[in-house]
Simulated scan of single mutants.
Amino acid sequence: MSDLHESTHHYGAQDAPGPENLLLVWDAPNLDMGLGAILGGRPTAAYRPRFDAIGRWLLARADRLSQETGSRVEAEATVFTNVTPGGADVVRPWVEALRNVGFAVFAKPKTDEDSDVDPDMLAHIRRRHAEGVLRGLVVASADGQNFKETIDELIAEGLPVTVIGFHEHASWAVASDTIEFVDLEEITGVFREPLPRISLDQLPDEGAWLQPFRPLSALLAGRNH
């Protein structure tokens, strides 16, 4: 059975079908990991993405899609994130700031290696598709290959799909002939300072450190599955 037509999660009445939309799903844990790999550590305020800039970019896209389709297409954006045990107080200001900008937030407890938000992101995409309101999709993920099957199906149906992330980690999307890839740093105003990116094609003479994408200890967790 097509991935797009699998059963979806149950959602409340507040999530009833709305107007035609350009849907953005933002994979916060994965993008944080990708950004941390570029920076070599946790991002400071200067290197945290500005969601008001992302919102303006998405609204401009929705407006362009409205003109192309001749129907009103609204922007819908949801950030999907995990909350670690005892970490609610740390994330709460960020979540509230997102909601004030106009983003919905799907928050899920991070209890083990299998409690990622990818299945919830896919369920949300499938739900909008089943409702018949999906007119375009933007997937924000540093490594969104988990979404590739669904993306390919939507493109086959004629829906435009954009992947935003970091070109260092998304070669599958950068090289695609059918997916539009936008590097997060190319979106105006997303970062206050240029990212200290290192390219293997343009290494400094003194060399450069390339940090791991995940802790080595993750290999131990993988043996248990």
Score class of each variant (00 low, 15 high):
residue 1 M to E: 13
residue 1 M to T: 12
residue 5 H to D: 14
residue 7 S to K: 14
residue 9 H to I: 12
residue 9 H to N: 09
residue 11 Y to C: 00
residue 13 A to L: 01
residue 13 A to W: 02
residue 15 D to E: 11
residue 15 D to M: 02
residue 17 P to L: 10
residue 19 P to W: 13
residue 22 L to I: 03
residue 23 L to C: 12
residue 23 L to G: 09
residue 24 L to S: 00
residue 25 V to A: 04
residue 26 W to Q: 05
residue 29 P to E: 09
residue 31 L to T: 14
residue 34 G to K: 11
residue 41 G to H: 03
residue 42 R to M: 05
residue 44 T to C: 12
residue 45 A to Q: 13
residue 47 Y to V: 01
residue 47 Y to W: 14
residue 49 P to N: 09
residue 51 F to W: 12
residue 51 F to S: 06
residue 52 D to E: 15
residue 52 D to G: 03
residue 53 A to M: 04
residue 55 G to D: 13
residue 55 G to W: 06
residue 57 W to C: 03
residue 58 L to A: 11
residue 59 L to D: 15
residue 59 L to I: 03
residue 59 L to F: 00
residue 60 A to M: 05
residue 61 R to K: 11
residue 64 R to F: 03
residue 65 L to G: 03
residue 65 L to M: 10
residue 66 S to T: 15
residue 66 S to W: 03
residue 69 T to H: 04
residue 70 G to T: 05
residue 72 R to A: 10
residue 74 E to G: 03
residue 81 T to Q: 08
residue 81 T to S: 11
residue 81 T to A: 04
residue 83 V to D: 02
residue 85 P to T: 10
residue 86 G to T: 06
residue 91 V to Q: 09
residue 93 P to Y: 01
residue 93 P to E: 00
residue 94 W to C: 08
residue 97 A to G: 15
residue 99 R to Y: 05
residue 101 V to S: 00
residue 103 F to S: 02
residue 104 A to Q: 04
residue 107 A to K: 06
residue 108 K to A: 15
residue 113 E to G: 01
residue 114 D to S: 10
residue 116 D to P: 00
residue 116 D to M: 09
residue 117 V to G: 02
residue 120 D to L: 06
residue 121 M to E: 06
residue 123 A to L: 07
residue 124 H to W: 14
residue 125 I to V: 14
residue 126 R to H: 07
residue 127 R to F: 01
residue 130 A to L: 06
residue 130 A to V: 02
residue 131 E to T: 04
residue 132 G to H: 10
residue 132 G to N: 10
residue 133 V to Y: 01
residue 133 V to A: 15
residue 134 L to G: 13
residue 137 L to S: 07
residue 138 V to L: 09
residue 138 V to Q: 02
residue 138 V to Y: 03
residue 139 V to P: 01
residue 140 A to S: 09
residue 141 S to E: 07
residue 142 A to R: 08
residue 143 D to C: 01
residue 145 Q to A: 09
residue 149 E to P: 03
residue 151 I to E: 05
residue 156 A to K: 15
residue 156 A to W: 08
residue 158 G to M: 07
residue 163 V to S: 00
residue 164 I to A: 06
residue 165 G to Y: 05
residue 166 F to A: 04
residue 168 E to C: 02
residue 179 I to H: 08
residue 179 I to Q: 11
residue 179 I to A: 05
residue 180 E to Y: 03
residue 181 F to V: 09
residue 181 F to I: 07
residue 182 V to W: 04
residue 183 D to V: 05
residue 184 L to H: 12
residue 184 L to I: 13
residue 185 E to P: 05
residue 185 E to M: 06
residue 186 E to H: 08
residue 187 I to M: 08
residue 189 G to Y: 01
residue 191 F to S: 12
residue 191 F to N: 12
residue 193 E to A: 08
residue 193 E to P: 02
residue 195 L to M: 04
residue 196 P to H: 12
residue 197 R to E: 07
residue 197 R to Q: 06
residue 197 R to A: 09
residue 198 I to S: 13
residue 198 I to V: 14
residue 199 S to E: 12
residue 201 D to W: 02
residue 204 P to S: 06
residue 205 D to M: 07
residue 205 D to V: 00
residue 207 G to P: 02
residue 209 W to K: 07
residue 211 Q to R: 12
residue 215 P to G: 11
residue 217 S to T: 10
residue 220 L to Y: 11
residue 222 G to H: 06
residue 223 R to M: 12
residue 223 R to C: 05
